[in-house]
Design a protein around this nucleic acid. Structure first.
Lengths: 108, 108
DNA sequence: AACTACTACTCAGCGCTACTATGTACTGGT
DNA sequence: ACCAGTACATAGTAGCGCTGAGTAGTAGTT
């Protein structure tokens, strides 16, 4: 992964995953696959699982274990109320930053 | 500073400063003041100086020492060719990420 | 039965960046 | 003398994504 992208994902990857989870419960492997399909081809599996552990620990998601047809049981994550609130704050922060950067890109 | 903003600035603050430096040589204190005026009110002085040390070490800027009317001498940073190229890559990376996030915000 | 591939999750250790907290030093006003 | 403003520096900390490796279950092939 490019170094710039790695650094830029800090803080944003979490928001991306939470946004994906909105009204769309999913499990780790599924999320990784989806990220890759979105162009984040080099995101490491370990990164996603670590992120999921973190947001669970922070109480942003609810978890349910479900058997899988092929492979070990899945841990299905769904956004809860705290997660939704946190995601709202994420969009506010992102909005501010994106606005500043766009105005910079167009030469103030 | 909000935790989300702190994390999101990783990778982007560098780009913000380099963009500011485009055709506009500046010194640390000046950059800090400008950042605050742009709404980044809580960015620590130490953060900016550390960043400047880093981009100098990475050869992205040229430095010139100039006496100040009020206070210690200033270190004036200007973007060099390597810095311009690095900034171009930054905008590419940012563009990709911003596009993904905007499409997520509008519900895919 | 042994193999390969895909599915699915876990974890220790590392590198990088921003923050905290503090210190140094020069100028000018009271 | 004292304080505010200007200007730069740095050691230590926290947090996040990456690396690299491992564990396990299912299914198809040989």
């Amino acid at each position: 992964m490019g170094k710039q992208m790695t650094e830029m994902l800090k803080g944003t990857l979490e928001g991306i995953v939470l946004a994906f989870l909105t009204g769309n419960p999913a499990y780790g492997y599924e999320i990784t696959t989806w990220l890759r399909s979105q162009g984040f081809t080099e995101i490491a599996e370990g990164t996603v699982y670590a992120l999921l552990v973190r947001i669970e620990k922070n109480g942003l998601v609810d978890v349910e274990k479900r058997p899988s047809e092929k492979g070990p049981p899945r841990k299905v994550y769904s956004l809860n109320e705290a997660g939704q609130k946190y995601l709202d704050e994420f969009w506010t922060t992102w909005g501010f930053l994106a606005e500043r950067l766009e105005s910079l890109r167009e030469g103030n």
